[in-house]
Structure formats: structure tokens, C-alpha cells
């Protein structure tokens, strides 16, 4: 079966006052219709930039310097303005990290929901308003019809993220990219919002790319997981494979840093020693080598190519064929 979204060798560069730096260095992945793919990594790993590049939402400082993005076989990077407009919001939608700033404070909630419906589905005002009330009700906002007339400030963070999800799924998109959708929310609300996204996208058969720094969240929600580090995918596989048999030392370190709910809490939470490489600084060899417990001479000399491990899994590590332990 062919992929709904196909990202191939994507390279994104940023022009900064200090020179150019490459935020995404050859990322490839694909998402089948209805599939859920998670992208995990620390901040600065390039996961958000990858998502923005796919929807062509990068700011003026960033350029896609190489690679391809195909949606349903069509070349997204070649879309003209009109094609892009008809595609975004209708077939590919996005939910952003901070619900407090991703809704326009000066535009009524109703307008923010209906404008997508009117633009893409050609509904008139009345029909769009009715549909918007229905959508808000379906994401669990009580008294939805009345709240359409309110401004975002009267909504809590969790409620705003529900509105953002309602907007995203309003035109039944085939792909939803959610960039840290629960990071800014209270822990109790996080689970509700994830459940909501789960239900809504399952009903519509929408494929999801979930971006998070939280491997726990990603592995429960997603079918497949990509682990990104310093602008590259260092490991990918099914959620089970990644959690149960991680092959990249970075993935293992990420897993180890999730505190267990059983037993006594360690005095200090485990963290990965060192810091990710500075963006823009050139380095030879594996980007993780400085922090890696397995690092050998070969790691500092040669950047490892992604290694096929069978069952469709990949890991970019010189020692990927060795299991942990």
C-alpha cells in the first residue's frame, strides 16, 4: 500500500546572524493512511521543524534545502499558493503546542472555527455556525452554541486545545500533525486531550503524526515511532519494538529517563549526561558520540548510516545490531 505522506531525505537550513545551520539533516519517513507515527526527541532535535516543513509553515529564515515531501503522491514542495491553501486545513491539518497563543485573542471562537469550514467546504454562514457548534460539542465543550460567541480568553488551556483540535479535524483531514499538543497542559488534562485526539482521528480515519519529547506518550498513542537526535532520525520502528528492544543508545537513554511508577523513586531522576551538539557547529562522526556510553573510535570518525534491522526497523548506530544488555 502506498504511503499517504512520504518524506524523503528532508534537509532544512536556517539562516542565522552567525551563519547557516542545518536543523534537519536528511530525515525520511512515511505515514500510511490512518496510521499514527510518533516523532520523539529533545528540543532542538529538529522534530518541530520537520513538521513545519511538511506543512510548509517554516518562517522566512528557514529553507528546505533538499529532499521531497509527497502527499498522496503529489509533490507538496512544488504546490503553488492556491494548491497549498486548498490542501492545508482541508487535507492536512495541524495542532500546535501552546493553546494559549495559537488562537487569535481578538477573534471570536466561532469565527475561528467557521472560517476553515467556509473556506474549504464552502458552507454559508448559518451552516458553518451550526457545524461549528456541533464540532465544539463533539470535542466536549459544554454549551457549545453559546460559547461560539466568546473570545479565547474565557477558555481554559485544555478547552482551547479542544477548540484547536475541533478546528484541525473540522474538514475531516487525512493527516493531522500534532506538535507537542499536550506539553503545555496540566497532567490530568493531557490524558483527556490525548483521548480526544485518539477518538476523533479514529472516527475519521485520519493519520496522525504526533510530535513529543515524551516517549511514554508517543509509544502509547502511536503505531510507529521515530526517534530524532540532532536533526536526524536515529531509530525507527514499531512502538513495541522501540520500547521493548531499543537499538540506539540514545533511545535506551530516553527510556531510562522515564521514571518508573513502581518501586522507590531514585534520589535523582536519571538524565542523559552531556548536551546535544550545538546547532550550526560542524562535527564529524556520530552526533551522539560525546554522550554515548558505547562510543568507540569509529563513532567519532564516521557518522553511522541507518541500518536495516529487519521488520522495517532502522537504527543509525555502529552498534545497532547489538541488543541492550
Amino acid at each position: 500500500m502506498s504511503a499517504l505522506l512520504d518524506v524523503e531525505d528532508l534537509v532544512v537550513r536556517f539562516a542565522t546572524p552567525g551563519g547557516e545551520h542545518t536543523a534537519v539533516r536528511g530525515v525520511s519517513f512515511s505515514v500510511r493512511a490512518g496510521e499514527r507515527v510518533g516523532i520523539v526527541g529533545e528540543s532542538g532535535s529538529g522534530k518541530s521543524v520537520t513538521a513545519q516543513a511538511v506543512l510548509r509553515l517554516l518562517g522566512p529564515a528557514a529553507t528546505v534545502a533538499g529532499g521531497a515531501v509527497r502527499f498522496d503522491g503529489r509533490d507538496v514542495l512544488a504546490f503553488d499558493r492556491g494548491e497549498l491553501r486548498r490542501w492545508r486545513g482541508a487535507q492536512a491539518a495541524m495542532v500546535f503546542q501552546d493553546p494559549l497563543s495559537s488562537l487569535n485573542p481578538l477573534v471570536r471562537i466561532g469565527r475561528q472555527v467557521t472560517e476553515t469550514l467556509r473556506e474549504h467546504l464552502g458552507l454559508d454562514r448559518r451552516a458553518a455556525t451550526a457545524k461549528a457548534a456541533e464540532l465544539l460539542a463533539s470535542v466536549g465543550i459544554p454549551d457549545a452554541a453559546a460559547r461560539l460567541r466568546e473570545y479565547p480568553m474565557t477558555f481554559s488551556g485544555g478547552m482551547r486545545q479542544r477548540v484547536a483540535i475541533a478546528i484541525a479535524i473540522s474538514c475531516a483531514p487525512r493527516l493531522l500533525i500534532a506538535d507537542e499538543p499536550t506539553t503545555a497542559l496540566d497532567v490530568t488534562v493531557q490524558a483527556q486531550v490525548l483521548d480526544l485526539m485518539d477518538g476523533m482521528t479514529a472516527d475519521l480515519g485520519t493519520a496522525v503524526v504526533l510530535i513529543s519529547h515524551d516517549l511514554g506518550v508517543v509509544s502509547t498513542f502511536c503505531d510507529r515511532v521515530l526517534v530524532m537526535y540532532a536533526g536526524r532520525v536515529v531509530e525507527s520502528g514499531t512502538a513495541d519494538q522501540i520500547v521493548e528492544d531499543p537499538r540506539h543508545p540514545y533511545t535506551r537513554a530516553l527510556l531510562a529517563s522515564i521514571p518508573s511508577l513502581e518501586g522507590e523513586l531514585p534520589r535523582r531522576l536519571p538524565s542523559i549526561p552531556g548536551t546535544p551538539p550545538q546547532p550550526g557547529r560542524a562535527h564529524t562522526g556520530c552526533a551522539f558520540a560525546d554522550r554515548c556510553p558505547l562510543a568507540a573510535d569509529v563513532c567519532r570518525a564516521e557518522d553511522p548510516e541507518p541500518l536495516e534491522l529487519g521488520d522495517g526497523r532502522l537504527a543509525a548506530c555502529h552498534f545497532a545490531d547489538r541488543s541492550a544488555g
Binding site: L55, L57, L84, R85, R86, W87, R88, G89, A90, A93, M94, F96, Q97, D98, S101, S102, L103, N104, P105, E115, T116, E119, H120, A164, I167
Partner: peptide
Amino acid sequence: TPYIQLARAKGLR
């Protein structure tokens, strides 16, 4: 701001 980014992601003119 993110709300302008969202407006773009919504496919508005």
C-alpha cells in the same frame, strides 16, 4: 505568533 501560523495551517487566504 502561533495564531498566525495556525491561520496559515488552516489554509486561509
